[in-house]
């Protein structure tokens, strides 16, 4: 099977959504979709290079004890790999250079931002320029949100999508930037493929449609290649109509809107990577 798409979720130390992300990847057509515990990487038995699509899943890495995903980012940067192999951070760098795809959801998005993988406006994947911090309401919140997409964005995942509807489930989802310049760069380069929106799919700063007070209503960002993407809402949580909170009262297609993001990613890989 030369053309098979291989998807991966790194699990362990508090990731929680690895099973449903694997299920979403399979449903979207990935021939291989594995949840692999980080111990397998640190033991040197599994390498990122064996995969095309890296998913960093939702959860509470190390309990988010030092701030969301902080301790997790530190582990990827510094944990030694047995036999002196390349660290996970180095393997991720190579993965990006190889033109492969990375999607971070919720805690995975926080992890990417805090490692500097996103938004990497200057393609420097090691400098943090943004962050995700406590929701303005000061609390964890689970609710469904409407999201506006940007058709001019290079983001591979949101290609062809108009508005989407997904759940958020987080306490630290407020997107902030280090400077107005960064925000201007994000806007100019269309690196904000997803924004929290009202019922008419217009971006909003109003709670609860914007559940955390993110600047510019940012719900997700991508890097300039569009191959790296992170978002607070959970696409893996809406891949079938029975995930929708109103499926008992609305006529809905079999496939959920979250699945589209995975289909786009896997379609791209099939055409460009494998």
């Amino acid at each position: 099977m030369a053309k098979e798409v291989r998807s991966l979720v790194i699990a362990g130390n508090g990731t929680n959504c690895e099973r449903e992300v694997v299920a979403a990847c399979r449903l979207a057509g990935s021939e291989v979709a594995d949840a692999v515990h980080i111990a397998e990487f640190l033991a040197g038995r599994v390498k990122l290079a064996d995969y095309h699509f890296l998913n960093l899943a939702g959860g509470f890495l190390d309990g988010d004890d030092l701030g969301s995903a902080k301790a997790g980012a530190n582990r990827l940067l510094h944990a030694p790999v047995a036999g002196g192999g390349a660290s996970l951070a180095e393997q991720i760098g190579q993965f990006i250079d190889d033109g492969k795809l990375i999607m971070g959801v919720c805690n995975g998005f926080q992890l990417m931002v805090k490692m500097g993988l996103l938004p990497a406006t200057d393609l420097n994947y090691q400098r943090q320029s943004c962050s995700l911090t406590h929701n303005d309401c000061g609390r964890f919140v689970d609710r469904w949100v409407s999201l506006q997409t940007d058709s001019d964005s290079p983001c591979i995942y949101t290609r062809g999508l108009e508005g989407i509807y997904l759940p958020v489930r987080h306490g630290e989802g407020k997107f902030v930037v280090d400077s107005d310049t960064t925000l201007a760069q994000l806007e100019a380069a269309h690196l904000i493929p997803l924004r929290y929106a009202d019922d008419n799919f217009s971006p909003t700063m109003d709670y609860p449609a914007n559940p955390n007070g993110s600047v510019a209503a940012i719900a997700g960002v991508c890097d300039p290649t569009g191959r790296l993407f992170g978002l607070m809402p959970h696409p893996e949580a809406y891949v079938h109509y029975t995930h929708h909170p109103r499926w008992t009262r609305e006529k809905l297609p079999e496939e959920g809107m979250g699945l589209w993001l995975y289909q786009n990613a896997i379609g791209y890989i099939r055409e460009n990577v494998v």
């Binding site: 449903e20 891949v239 029975t242 109103r246």
Partner: peptide
Amino acid sequence: IRRYDHEVQAGTVVKPLTGI
């Protein structure tokens, strides 16, 4: 209810809150 994640693992088909 909203402070509790009631959807992780993607199996919750009838959620604690429902309706229009």
